[in-house]
Design a binder for these strands. Structure first.
Lengths: 184, 184
DNA sequence: CCGCTCATGTAACTGGTTACATGATTTA
DNA sequence: TAAATCATGTAACCAGTTACATGAGCGG
């Protein structure tokens, strides 16, 4: 019962709970629409995963058929809700809170390897890239406005807002450091 | 030459550049000491990876021997520096800036599935977990103080600071939302 | 009727992980 | 002298990916 699940398995479990009865395809779309690129929502990941969750009795499915078109609709079981609660916590595992991985920051770490001109161009492109992310987040917020009635989903969106503001501020600091002391 | 490399391959290339001549073991330690849990620095990842980088002429190595103990010391080649610069950018790939994955936020999204009491406990544990992360970051800052002379490494550390401050603020918002409207 | 989206899946691959194995050196 | 760390690697595994295959339904 308390088999440890992968992060994606638990997240999908949560999605099915949150979306209500839905198909693997719906889950795939929710993942690929997400502004986070953590998971692509690839078919090769999702279909076998949801079958596994059904075998473990955390999801249940039924075939819906309108016309010739088949559609397997999943819903979460009581055991599934239990597993979801256990994953969400408390207690929180020791690895739940960590320094998140930011590819932009990773690259910034090695900016000294580049010439000043490149560094300035880098900052400019990084700002544009962050603005693009901002647009994607805003788009998600409008499309998924309905699930936003959940106060915690709203807070997750708020997290995205705060995160982007923080990264913009950080980039400004980087830029001023660059302009004031061109010695790197 | 412009073979696309994995994120870890490029990051290791950067580490060797930043640390100066060093062994695979040094790289492993740098990765496992890092407060980010993105990469474990497992032997099974690093040793084959650095061999690959050497085959591609991005790293060069020589066997150092003091007593019976062998130690393979790697340094970055000019081609390696070129590859590093190319990875760092500009130009920045479209996937470089993204909404980062935060397991804490992922779990928060489904907090409505838990009872109010659990939600309050969750917030408390999350705060403790973030404080633990803060301690790990501070420890890293003291241990790796020498590479901190690089202004961009300093800015990466600064990013960690800002990130933690942001997440603490977000958690406070979550908590007040919880205390004011206990309806979730 | 062509192309797009809906819908479900499989096969091959990949970039990591854990666990194991070995042996030298250092420290308590 | 026992335990920890230094140091190098391999083997088995695993959770994702891309790419492929198939077919229904729908809008231009």
């Amino acid at each position: 019962m308390d088999r440890t699940q992968s992060e994606l398995e638990s997240f999908v479990l949560g999605l099915v709970w949150q979306l209500g009865p839905c198909s693997a395809y719906d889950v795939r779309k929710a993942l690929s629409d997400s502004p986070s690129s953590q998971w692509s929502g690839s078919a090769g990941a999702i279909y076998p995963l949801m079958s596994r969750l059904e075998r473990r009795r955390l999801l249940a499915s039924k075939e819906e058929r309108n016309g010739k078109r088949a559609r397997r609709s999943y819903r979460i079981t009581p055991a599934g809700i239990g597993a979801l609660r256990q994953w969400v916590g408390p207690p929180l595992g020791s690895d739940v809170a960590t320094v998140v991985y930011d590819p932009l920051r990773s690259r910034a770490r090695f900016l000294s390897a580049c010439a000043l001109e490149e560094q300035l161009r880098w900052v400019g492109e990084a700002r544009l890239a962050l603005e693009e992310v901002e647009r994607r987040v805003r788009h998600w917020n409008t499309v998924y406005g309905d699930v936003m009635r959940d106060p915690f989903v709203r807070l997750v969106a708020r997290h995205g807002e705060l995160d982007l503001a923080m990264r913009r501020a950080w980039l400004r600091e980087l830029e001023t450091a660059l302009r004031c002391s061109p010695e790197a």
